[in-house]
Design a protein around this nucleic acid. Structure first.
Lengths: 351, 351
DNA sequence: CGTTAGCACTCTGGCGGATGGAGTGCTAAT
DNA sequence: ATTAGCACTCCATCCGCCAGAGTGCTAACG
């Protein structure tokens, strides 16, 4: 069914007031707030209707109304106006994005922190794991007679390195040999294609440098494992305490614990069709989030990989502001990492 | 002045009870808890003395006593017994240390998390910044015609890399030339010795590849800056809420904010003479920590660098347990990073 | 018929006073 | 030197009360 224009305006006024104050709003307040004046009594009638429709709730007989989850849902879907970002805010985001650290993990971490600062809610960010990654090339760099650097680059253009020290000395020629051996044997393989047999064969071929093979390959394996591993970064948990709905300590504590515990990143579902998804209260699967809202934005990195950032807060959260900031940041991240997939300055997993 | 043996035992009993329960302890409780029986009245007399000495306090006329900061100080200095770690705990720490990620920053981060889990208090960890670091060598690795990897190694054996993509193509010979140019010009220089003039000279020498010089050098600068930058990692803030002294929300909030805000790492002073330092309540400089205790452990990495990990909690914290865990972990970290400075498997800043 | 004023009703949150319990300090006895 | 006894103090809790805010209903109004 379709709501009357007036009902919509009243609902919107109620929700926006409640978002600001976190207090139930009464008929008088609504009547005052609206441009076209109606008496509180009229508003009361409308509010009774809205309650009957399940869009509003009463905490008790004689308090004002508060929006129900469905009320928020309607608000988000139809009533909410896109929020404009101020120059200051865009500047802040841009600046943060162009921060010198361009490492994947740190940027993700940092992104979470920025969202959190910008929205005053706790934020989370997932690194996007990719399962079918392979090593594209190995490089071994001699540093001293008994030390060299392994540089490994994946097909997703992530570059990692490690310094290896040896008990015994090594010649440049040996290193060279090792290098080509690694590049012919272990490139283009996914994690589970690197079998113990393969290792044995390679070790055999390596002659007296056989021990080094396992050193280098196990490093490569570490890298692949790390890239496969998705991790949840959370930031700004403290903001939770600023909101009256978490003054009860208990609530704050359970939610904080839920957010900060390492866990299945899948509990924050990646929005599939649209770039952004809003989960209001009971729409969340996890019990700990049942009276909490989550806003999740997806950003596409090159190579079919996706990243996710999001915000967690009370159902009474300022959806308009948050979605604006989040989508802007997501775009920025996509641009930063992606830049169209492979070309130009792309994802360097470096350092 | 020296306390009588009995006074010491009473003080200790009070402190340990208070550490457990967070409630003022009365004469009866103390009398019951002590092996050698005394009547509550006797204990009361002693307690009055201890209060006169400034070691105990009364929240109000008719509550039990609670330890004063000086009381804790005495306890920490003289009364406290070293706590033994259980096998489980050492295992847990060892396991965490041998975790595959051996990157400096991550290990530090992880270390904080472990301390926090182990102690149930918020923990912090500082990365040890070193100011006089220089680049020891550059390596440029050709990946494609228009892309190469820069690998940079510092004199502290940290290795970093970045993938660079170019708008135009590049020959192997050019890269070679660039490589030697970089190694002759920019190695062995600290951050402020890399002057714009030097850059200009090098760019001139580079001929048509002049643009690449600044690309690579600015990366090197980033690396040096990053190593100079000390950062505070905090973990387990949530644990604060578990302790009754932070049920007042306000306290919790200010402290949490203080801990989570990026700030001068100097606010956690590095213990100089001894490996561990305990700051009790008012002994802290920062106002936000005035009724909070901080336990800080230092661990020495090779090359004169030091790391710091620590724990923050109410003055009533379990110093014995915490110091035990912290010092064990600090030793582990020292071993992990240091291993005597340069030799064998040493610090790889890598990946 | 939609809108509004008026009014009785309900529920909460805050305030004040009374009560009981816990613990102290003092005194006197052992 | 230690202890039992006792009067005293202070806090935490509970209870009842009241004001305020907001509702829903009814009746009047345009």
């Amino acid at each position: 069914m379709e709501l009357s224009e007036r009902k919509k305006r009243i609902l919107r006024a109620i929700i926006e007031s409640y978002i600001q104050t976190a207090e139930p709003v009464g008929s008088k307040a609504v009547a005052d707030a609206m441009e076209t004046a109606f008496s509180p009594a009229t508003v009361r009638n409308e509010m009774a209707d809205l309650e009957a429709l399940g869009l509003l709730e009463k905490p008790h007989t004689s308090a004002g109304r508060i929006p129900s989850p469905q009320g928020y849902r309607l608000y988000v879907n139809e009533l909410m106006e896109e929020h404009r970002l101020s120059m200051q805010e865009t500047d802040r985001i841009n600046q943060a994005l162009h921060l010198k650290m361009r490492e994947l993990d740190r940027v993700i971490d940092e992104a979470g922190r920025i969202v959190s600062q910008l929205t005053n809610y706790p934020a989370f960010a997932l690194s996007a794991g990719s399962e079918r990654t392979t090593i594209r090339r190995f490089d071994l760099l001699m540093v001293e007679r008994n030390a060299f650097i392994v540089v490994v680059m994946t097909d997703t253009n992530v570059v990692r390195n490690r310094l290896v020290r040896l008990p015994s000395d090594l010649t440049e020629a040996q290193l060279q040999m090792l290098n080509t051996l690694l590049n012919t044997t272990f490139t283009g393989l996914t994690l589970d294609e690197i079998t113990p047999e393969l290792m044995r064969v390679a070790q055999h071929a390596a002659g007296e440098a056989y021990g080094l093979i396992s050193l280098v390959v196990s490093f490569a394996i570490e890298v692949l494992e790390e890239l496969e591993h998705r991790r949840v970064h959370t930031a700004g948990l403290t903001h939770l305490l600023e909101h009256p709905e978490y003054r009860s300590l208990e609530k704050a504590q359970t939610l904080m614990r839920y957010l900060s515990e390492e866990g299945d990143p899948a509990r924050f579902p990646v929005p599939q069709n649209e770039p952004m998804r809003i989960l209001i209260g009971p729409e969340n699967v996890a019990d700990a989030l049942k009276d909490t809202s989550v806003v999740i934005a997806r950003y596409d990195i090159g190579g079919g990989m996706q990243g996710v950032i999001g915000v967690v807060g009370p159902t009474r959260m300022d959806y308009a502001r948050i979605t604006a900031r989040l989508s802007y940041l997501a775009e920025g991240l996509a641009r930063l990492f992606g830049q169209g997939g492979l070309p130009g300055g792309g994802p360097d997993g470096g350092t």
